[in-house]
Write a protein that binds this DNA or RNA. Structure first.
Lengths: 220, 220
DNA sequence: CGTCTCCTTGAAAGCGTTCAATTACAGTGG
DNA sequence: CCACTGTAATTGAACGCTTTCAAGGAGACG
């Protein structure tokens, strides 16, 4: 992991507020003052939080166009480069100088947080991994293929599972013919319908919400 | 929405954009157009999402001062009154008429979403229930006592557990002397330190990312 | 006093974790 | 180009926790 760019704490700033980081480097750390927020220009970033018991919780993966680091005065999570990345740095949206883009950044941040909650809501390991694969495929753009540049441990900490369970589940999917593994980090989706069935949801948010006049939870 | 208030009150409250709902009633349903967002004046509201497999996911509890319903064009979750509630209704923050309070509402929504993610991140049932009790105690205001107006099923769906496991865990805590149960819905915390230890985090670190004070003209 | 709903508790089964070992892969140097 | 080496991923087996199935109890309300 040769650092051809800036070091962790001395982020190099180019003319346009662009920041380049090598794979594995930290954008900022949990507890740092939240002076800026970031937009991903290229590459992938993960945000994570280190709990008192030592285990790591991954709160999101951020792709090109995504925004992260929108928080109060102090970053409650760390942000790290999953791949080599280029970011655009913007002044903090909150508290001080309100930028025009700030509300949009907040919306995107909220959307991302909701996506995480949605993933967690799935009950079983198969549910979560399937939902994760579908969601990742959607965001990667390529329809039938999913790139997984993050490690199994990253996925595990994102889904609140162990890397063993993630690995097992992915292998199971391959065994059942739902997906095909082209190397470790590339997944071809063979049976999207089956995957969706396992995930237990429709996958797309706005288009089909089958809420007729179904009275949920009668005692409400 | 359905109003259970007397006529004269209704008129008075409508002028202020206030809405009153009885326990169990829905504020809006999943899939409804998101024309407004809401601030809790009194009482407690839950937001929930119904998954395709039939199970319910509770994405948050909202207390006085909290804001919910800040979303895109369509509500991706339902909102329901856990107790009798009074709400203030505001015009939708997103897309159309930008209100001055909109960014603040977004910030609060984001804070709430992060809180949920934080809860989910805990590994075991004991972890999650302990974290939930501490968080709820903090928000309820009363230090050593926690009111739990929501059902065990609500808590379970919030923590992604079954109501059985929630019940068992709470009973265990009581058996170990960490808490005392005064009826089903009131919990006295006897050993906050022990509870924190089980929760596996400090609990207070997160409560400070709140966005309370928006500073005007402050320098970076 | 009965009924209803919600909560608690028990026992067994299922699933994910843990511990432990093996295998695939990328980077390096011969 | 191929062997070597360290890291990441896969797989196996036993354990433990949560769920599931099933039953019993506690309040609330008429």
């Amino acid at each position: 992991m040769i650092s051809v760019v800036a070091r962790d704490d001395e982020v190099r700033q180019a003319a346009l507020g662009l920041v380049q980081l090598a794979k594995g480097q930290a954008v900022y750390h949990q507890g740092d003052p939240a002076l800026h927020w970031f937009e991903v220009i290229s590459g992938i970033v993960r945000t994570c939080r280190f709990m008192a018991d030592g285990h790591r919780q991954l709160t999101g993966f951020f792709y090109a166009g995504d925004v992260f680091g929108v928080e109060g005065r102090i970053h409650s999570e760390s942000a790290e480069a999953v791949t080599d990345v280029v970011l655009r740095r913007s002044r903090s949206a909150i508290g001080e100088q309100p930028s025009l883009d700030a509300p949009r950044a907040l919306e995107k941040a909220l959307e991302s947080a909701r996506r995480s909650i949605f993933l967690f809501g799935h009950r079983t390991a198969a549910n979560r991994v399937a939902a994760f694969l579908i969601a990742t495929a959607d965001r990667s753009g390529i329809q039938a293929g999913v790139e997984l540049p993050m490690s199994r441990a990253d996925i595990a900490d994102h889904l609140n599972l162990t890397l063993h369970t993630v690995s097992r589940t992915i292998s199971d999917f391959a065994r059942k013919g739902l997906i095909a593994l082209d190397g470790r980090q590339h997944v071809r989706i063979l049976d999207l319908g089956g995957l969706r069935a396992i995930a237990g949801d429709e996958g797309s948010e706005d288009s089909r919400i089958a809420v007729g006049d179904v009275r949920h939870g009668g005692s409400c």
